[in-house]
Design a protein around this nucleic acid. Structure first.
Length: 278
DNA sequence: AAAACATACAACCGCACTTAA
DNA sequence: CTTAAGTGCGGTTGTATGTTT
């Protein structure tokens, strides 16, 4: 059974948006305090577009918090590092770059960064040297076991954080589900022992990832109004921002607030020399 | 000056996941 | 529980603009 198309395409406009259409869309969203149902928006706003097109235009271009202009060197480095861990999961990468959209990052990757990596002799998918599979000594430059585990943990954890930022109720202690698997594992003995391994791997630098406790504290306050704020504000940029604590999580906060997951990623030693960016 | 080619990026398409009836 | 509707995501395409020949 095939799905019905998202909208009746007969008579609907496609292609580039005009300034008038942009204005209608922005005015409608501002006037109604949000977009509501994307499907019904075009009809209500008087646009000859499908809801999907409206949503895309808003999220990728018209949203007021979008950062315009070219990417900074730091942003490009961060994208490359995150791509090395997350792969082509542009939305997850974008969540770590405030004001940037997944589409924008995807375009940057496909037009610039991928080529730069290739020019440096690196596989843009694996971030490993292109020649690694045919070294004269037959030994590929594969990451160490702990490095691979590290990447797997980080990938799973970032995914869980992204999900939890959208589903803040999962943090309430009375509503833990089996889908918290990774987060509970991360804070379990297994996760702690892994983190211990990681610390020793990185020769003493403070790499404790942000704790569930600190996430929980944020969830009950900031996330209620802005579910994504945890990713955009509390998890990123410098790691020095203190998160308001509650009584149930203060001890975990003291333990972990010295750092953030992003700092962990940035400090993580990457074999690939990214000096070419500069 | 103009055609051919390259690049950048906005927009579209289809699939997958979530939600609600 | 099932299934259609709603939404988000990643891949791809189309077009405007810039550069080279």
């Amino acid at each position: 059974m095939g799905r019905k198309p998202c909208c009746d395409k007969m008579g609907l406009k496609k292609g580039p948006w005009t300034a008038e259409e942009d204005e209608i869309l922005v005015n409608y969203i501002n006037k109604n305090g949000g977009h509501g149902s994307w499907r019904s928006l075009p009809k209500l706003a008087g646009l000859l577009r499908c809801g999907k097109s409206c949503r895309l235009r808003w999220t990728n271009y018209l949203r007021p918090d979008i950062k315009r202009g070219s990417f900074t060197l730091e942003e490009e480095k961060l994208i490359i590092q995150l791509h090395g861990i997350l792969g082509n999961r542009w939305a997850a990468i974008a969540s770590q770059l405030p004001g940037r959209t997944d589409n924008e990052i995807k375009n940057l990757w496909n037009t610039h960064l991928k080529k730069r990596l290739i020019c440096m002799g690196l596989d843009p998918q694996t971030h490993q040297p292109l020649s690694s599979s045919c070294n004269p000594d037959g030994k590929a430059h594969a990451p160490s076991t702990s490095t691979r585990h590290m990447a797997q943990w980080e990938s799973a954890r970032l995914e869980a954080e992204a999900r939890l930022s959208r589903e803040p109720y999962l943090f309430t202690t009375s509503n833990k589900t089996d889908s918290d698997y990774f987060l509970r594992m991360w804070n379990s003995e297994v996760g702690q022992s892994f983190r211990g391994v990681h610390k020793s791997d990185n020769k003493g630098s403070c790499h404790s990832p942000i704790s569930l406790g600190s996430l929980s504290a944020t969830t009950t306050t900031d996330l209620a109004s802005n579910p994504r704020s945890i990713v955009k504000e509390d998890l990123v940029w410098g790691g020095s921002k203190k998160i308001a604590s509650d009584s149930s999580s203060s001890s975990e906060l003291e333990e972990d607030s010295c750092d953030t997951s992003l700092q962990l990623l940035l400090d993580f030693p990457i074999n690939n020399d990214m000096s070419f960016l500069e």
